[in-house]
Write a protein that binds this DNA or RNA. Structure first.
Lengths: 186, 186
DNA sequence: GCTCACATGTAATCCGTTACATGATTCT
DNA sequence: AGAATCATGTAACGGATTACATGTGAGC
């Protein structure tokens, strides 16, 4: 019964206490989305499957009319999570970056257009970095409250990662703006 | 008639001259794969679609018995490529990184296991970096031959990118190995 | 009364990988 | 003769997004 990575996202999110599908989605948006996204179309069906498999336990919380179903991690689910976290072997790694892809073909553009492209890439990563920085206070609060520093560490990694791409763009923008000098590789 | 990003990969690869599906796949493996992968299951059907749309022109090269069909970029195809390269608006950006995802949940692990995880992540990125470095000579040759420096620049970006993750892991491995000291965020 | 956030879910669709099937040519 | 590489393609499957459908509760 191999689980999808997204199933582990759910198990991981539930390890600190019961959550509804809606809340899991919110957590994902505030944290893992930058290195592992998940949509409602995955989360709700996956919760059902995990319940059938006995890894989570759902309970309807009928607080009046509004339907709400919170899921708890079962001991079996906790074991599955731990097993995944400690398992060896190739971890999924994938990147799809249209900006870099375009830049790869930038030979087909005029120099000013090449610089425009870099500026556009940089702009998107700057926006993303701001988004991440906006999340920081929340992550810091949670860290103080729960003592779990890992969400904050991954967030800071994300910010550093964005900064690297931004700097790369800025460097190349400068180099490509001065066409007289021979441009070396690095 | 909106084209998929992978269609643009094909158009881009063909802009330097005719290539077969097989050759396109090889080019992808040596270059764009690290920021935009493509499989035979996409390339061959896409070539057919692009031919029907008049963006590429296929020609059978029956050099004996072995079947071989090389595709050429048509003027319309070249325009489509240029239009994409210069178009504004949100570029696709996606990352799925199981290592970082696991680290996000590393609170559920014992400190030594946390360090093991970081080592495993670092190991994979070191292997990837070696792979990229292995490709460098070829990219440098091509650059000298064609004068197109962009493939080499993206390759160097990839190497720098891997290095950043490797350094991040190494830093954290050191920090987490000394549990006595209070560990700050950055 | 209206809008926004809460809340759950499904169906259509897209994108992409993997595995399979087939066969020719070249190199050892 | 056999292995590796060249070469093309399809079918099954899996993973994920998007759009849609539905309704409650709280605040303005």
């Amino acid at each position: 019964m191999a689980l999808s990575k997204t199933a582990y996202v759910i198990l991981g999110m539930l390890r600190k206490g019961p959550q509804t599908g809606y809340e899991i989605k919110q957590s994902v948006e505030l944290s893992t989305r930058f290195f592992w996204a998940a949509s409602y179309g995955q989360i709700y069906p996956e919760l059902k499957r995990l319940e059938e498999a006995g890894l989570v336990q759902g309970e309807a919380q009928s607080t009046g009319g509004r339907q709400r179903r919170a899921y708890t991690l079962t001991p079996t689910g906790g074991e599955a999570l731990r097993e995944w976290l400690t398992s060896a072997g190739g971890m999924h790694f994938e990147m799809r970056h249209e900006g870099v892809l375009r830049f790869f073909f930038a030979d087909a553009l005029e120099p000013p257009e090449q610089v425009d492209l870099l500026r556009a890439i940089r702009g998107e990563h700057e926006r993303l970095r701001e988004e991440l920085r906006g999340i920081c206070p929340k992550a810091e609060q949670r860290r103080s409250a729960s003592g779990d520093r890992f969400p904050l560490l991954t967030l800071e990694w994300g910010i550093a990662y964005q900064t690297n791409i931004i700097d790369w763009c800025a460097d190349l923008e400068r180099q490509l703006s001065e066409p007289q000098t021979a441009i070396k590789g690095s």
